[in-house]
């Protein structure tokens, strides 16, 4: 799952792979702003065939939060 999410993040925004760890903070460490987060959620929706709401995007802080969100949606 982490590898798949890593790939989506790298495709959606230009960020080096080694920076993408579960603990990495989206805004502070990866430089993901509000619009990048929307872009990322669109990519995640396509990749995992899920729907992510705006409120859920706003609540994401770390890469682990993305993993948890995708996991909960896939169940």
């Amino acid at each position: 799952m982490l590898e798949q999410v890593k790939k989506v993040i790298m495709d959606a925004i230009s960020v080096e792979e080694e920076l993408i760890t579960p603990q990495a903070r989206l805004s502070e460490d990866l430089g993901i702003d509000s619009l990048s987060a929307v872009e990322l959620s669109l990519e995640l929706e396509t990749e995992f065939d899920i729907r992510i709401e705006d409120e859920e995007i706003s609540a994401l802080v770390t890469v682990q939060d993305i993993l948890d969100l995708v996991n909960s949606k896939k169940q």
Partner: peptide, 11 residues
């Protein structure tokens, strides 16, 4: 305007 929702629609 709700920018995020508009972005989704626009693309």
């Amino acid at each position: 305007m709700d920018g995020k929702e508009v972005f989704r629609f626009a693309v």
